[in-house]
Amino acid sequence: MLKTLLIDHYDSFSWNVKAWLSHYFSVEVISYDDINSVDLKLYSLIVLSPGPKHPQDYPDTITLLKNIENSQAVLGICLGMQCMAFQTQNEVCSYAPPYHGKTSQISLLFKNGSQQITRVARYHSLKCNIDHSFDVLAQVENQIPMIIKHKSKNWLGLQFHPESFLTDSPDDMITYIKENLNL
């Protein structure tokens, strides 16, 4: 199984992310506090966990994204995706009313051309305004990006929570992530 590093931003869903990924990857979890003590090259996939507050409260994650090799596969979930947007100078701003423990439908387009409408769980008070560096692969009402993919780096960001029990078809989500990160 592919070696995966999950960076935990003091979140209460990180262990759900680990449990979800562990069916497909070999996952190690480290706290944000230890982010500078690991060798990222040892891992095929880096996952940035969800977490409280704003990307600017996690300067070490922003530095990690700045210095990481373009080919390194990175999956950002919620705050993780916001960190990707923030590091590339896309705007991350408040979103009222926030979506907490609520679901929306998004459309996933797979490599074989099939399209799948799926229900995903949302927990966010902030939103990303993407106007460069990324392609928006899925969005919900009022152009709120739900999935973003970097144009030149191997980064994929999910605004929703794939690990939530409210999210449908976790297996398909893994296929989708693998396809987009060339894993």
Partner: peptide, 27 residues
């Protein structure tokens, strides 16, 4: 509904912290 859902995800998380190497299970 969403209040309870949040707490369910939180409790899933806390139970997923528990070692289940023997059972390979998740919450």
């Amino acid at each position: 509904d969403s209040e309870l859902s949040m707490i369910v995800d939180l409790l899933r998380n806390d139970l997923n912290k528990l070692s289940c190497e023997t059972y390979k299970s998740k919450s």
